[in-house]
Nucleic acid binder design. Sequence first.
DNA 1: GCCAACGTTGGC
DNA 2: GCCAACGTTGGC
Length: 153
Amino acid sequence: MQYWLMKSEPDVFSIDHLAKLPGKTGSWEGVRNYQARNHLQAMKKGDLALFYHSSADIIGVAGIVTIAGEAEPDTFALDKKSIYHDPKATREKNPWVFVRVKYQKKFKEVVTLATLRQTAGLEDMLVLKKGMRLSIQPVTEKEFKIIEKMGSK
DNA sequence: GCCAACGTTGGC
DNA sequence: GCCAACGTTGGC
């Protein structure tokens, strides 16, 4: 059982969007960075992830999702019309994957980036590090629980 | 293999 | 809109 942080721009895909999908389950596609891809591949069904809103009016953790299944090939990479198209990907050699995520809970208030920075115990969080722009990050159980608690108040 | 140029991310 | 930081590309 591992814990993760997944970034999304809420204008594109927010936790509210996810909650409205059939089965409250959506696919997290379009990751085109190898390190982030490796994290997707390491995910197991039942893992929990913080849903992080980036480049938004209110930046921070908006809620929690469950990983609903293991990584599968991201075929948007093969679709020339998709914004996620990768000209180097072929059906035989497609490096990209997606995972299905299920809505778990939305925080009453977003736990903002500014709050995270001020919270004891989160000093080592990757998302707080300067220049860190990895869209899928591991978080520790301790970090996850601290943030879950703050979001549940 | 080096590294400059370029494109993207993401907070401010 | 700005710009620092980072990842990728491509010429050599």
